[in-house]
Design a binder for these strands. Structure first.
Length: 516
RNA sequence: GGCCCCAUCGUCUAGCGGUUCAGGACAUCACUCUUUCAAGGUGAAGACAUGGGUUCGACUCCCAUUGGGGCCGCCA
């Protein structure tokens, strides 16, 4: 049994799309499990401008997710080059061989003539259009004659006209195609360049790919590729066609061009809002095209965990059993199988992705989470003491869902007299009878208190009892005074982290503000 | 239009003829806990697209219908 060799062959587009990631992941998992090789080939066209610019996001994104390739750009390998545009010699040789053996022919029809035939076919309701081969050059003499007319040639496949092809798809089982419905596809243009379907399958073969695991959209294109391979007299790889990653709440293929539409989805727009909030604190550019949950960079910029995304994506179209949901990368490598890949498209569910993120985040130690958060504080322009950050992260618990959420706690680091307040809420609480006096009095009590949560709680309980008021009558105004917000984690912990000096200063500041 | 693929709760899925008036997860709702927001606890609601077969017996097999998706380029 030969070594398993799989590949992804993206065209460089400037962004790593979720659908491509899922295909990459399944290929990678399969390779790792089988002890095979995972290859990255870039199916660029020769007319690609700014190669580095459009390629780098894909490379970086895959690496960030831990989807590493054994052969490909930046790592090289025995089957170099890994850019399709540099492999034209192979394409040329393949076409020459096909021509030689009669499985392809020079065709001298003009595009207008083909269009006319196609139109006629539609008009006659023939269903399929099949080229008449009227301008097919069967002999050298034909070529001379056509060329004398000033015609230019393309190379077409001479497809079979009868019989049935059965593809034993590893995900879908046997799929039948009738050869007579296939067309004489062009494989080489008049300008001598080669078409994707020729180049791709020739490269796959040259690289020794054993399993072509790709998106379902290629299923209909498989017959012509198999024909090429068969005509070349080489061994066929196995095929596995993966279902699409679909839009939130529909079965349409997920597209990075329809973000505006996805914004109607609540979970999707909440995710975007969360991302934008973090990006704003970090002063990042956030055009919806480049910065949205459809693109991997979004997750990296906002502090998601690669493990969480990998776990979620693995389950989007595959399941081990009826209950296992939390997978480490190693678990996935161990359990993955093409046989258990689903056949139907699976919608991307941002809410569920977030649930996986939280689960993976909480599985990390406080120290780990602090390490993840620190760079975000730094990017927000803060040099924070790790101890303090650790206390915040620990107290915040699952409120910090992604590392970037640490920016919700920037208030812990701002100057006491520059605290921004929820003024509406503050006015409301301060407006309540006796609130200001109560706050001032409590300030006196804690001025000498021990600043740790338990002691502070006792302090407040005693104060409340002595004053004959309820906890609710002071704690809200106190929170607003100290943090400026109505929400947050435990107030005693909050005060302990802030420390006596800060808390007293903030209360003083609040009282001054209230006086105005 | 032709061909190909797909079809279980809102979503991701388990189910490979009987042990299932269909199990889990996310989301939702209610209650509970509570200094706020989360979290937690308890519970609820929620699906086999339809119609025919096959079978003693179909979510599971077959066919049709319907619906959804994809491919039909001198694009990748």
């Amino acid at each position: 049994m030969n070594e398993v060799r799989v590949r992804i062959a993206p065209s460089p587009t400037g962004a790593l799309h979720l659908g491509l990631v899922r295909t990459a992941l399944y290929n990678w998992l399969f390779a790792r499990q089988q002890g095979g090789r995972f290859i990255l080939r870039i199916d660029d066209t020769d007319a690609q401008r700014n190669m580095a610019e459009v390629l780098q996001p894909i490379l970086d994104g895959l690496r960030w997710l831990g989807i590493d390739w054994d052969e490909g750009p930046e790592v090289d390998g025995p089957n170099a080059p890994y850019f399709q545009s540099q492999r034209v010699d192979g394409h040329k040789a393949a076409v020459a061989s096909l021509l030689e053996s009669g499985y392809a022919y020079y065709d001298y029809a003009t595009t207008d003539e083909i269009a006319a035939e196609r139109q006629a076919a539609v008009a006659n309701k023939e269903g399929v259009f099949r080229y008449s081969r009227r301008w097919m050059a069967e002999t050298a003499a034909d070529r001379v004659r056509f060329e004398a007319e000033g015609r230019k040639s393309v190379v077409r496949l001479k497809m079979p006209t009868e019989g049935t092809l059965v593809i034993d798809d590893q995900v879908r089982g046997p799929v039948e195609f009738e050869w007579q419905r296939e067309q004489d596809h062009v494989i080489q243009r008049a300008d001598g360049t080669f078409l994707y379907h020729l180049a791709s399958i020739v490269d796959d073969h040259a690289m020794g790919i054993t399993h072509i695991i790709r998106a379902e959209e290629h299923l209909s294109n498989t017959p012509r590729q198999i024909f090429i391979l068969q005509s070349l007299g080489v061994e066929l790889p196995r095929f596995a066609h993966l279902p699409f990653v679909a839009e939130p709440g529909s079965r349409n293929k997920l597209s990075k061009r329809k973000i505006r539409e996805y914004m109607k989805n609540r979970d999707f727009s909440e995710l975007v809002a969360r991302g934008n909030k973090i990006a704003a604190a970090l002063k990042l550019e956030t055009g919806l095209d480049a910065f949205s949950p459809v693109v991997v960079d979004f997750y990296r910029q906002t502090g998601f965990l690669p493990e969480a995304i990998v776990n979620y994506l693995a389950l989007l179209g595959w399941a081990l059993d009826d209950k296992t949901e939390h997978f480490t990368r190693e678990d996935l490598v161990k359990s993955f199988s093409l046989e258990r890949v689903n056949k139907s498209a699976a919608s991307f569910d941002p809410g569920k992705l977030m649930a996986f993120q939280v689960r993976h985040m909480l599985a990390l130690s406080v120290e780990k989470r602090v390490d993840l958060c620190l760079p975000f504080l730094e990017k927000a322009g803060l040099v924070a003491a790790p101890d303090k950050v650790a206390a915040i992260v620990s107290a915040a618990g699952d409120r910090i869902k992604v590392a970037g959420d640490i920016i919700d706690y920037l208030d812990f680091f701002t100057d006491d007299d520059k605290l921004t307040r929820d003024t509406t809420a503050f006015a409301r609480e301060m407006g309540k009878y006796g609130a200001a006096g109560c706050l001032a009095k409590f300030r006196g009590v804690i001025a000498s208190a021990a600043f740790e949560p338990a002691a502070l709680e006792k302090c407040l309980q005693d104060f409340v009892a002595a004053e004959g008021i309820k906890v609710g009558q002071i704690i809200h105004v106190l929170r607003l005074a100290v943090t400026g917000k109505t929400v947050g984690f435990g107030l005693y912990e909050t005060m302990a982290i802030l420390g006596r000096e800060s808390v007293l200063a903030r209360i003083d500041y609040a009282l001054r503000e209230a006086d105005k």
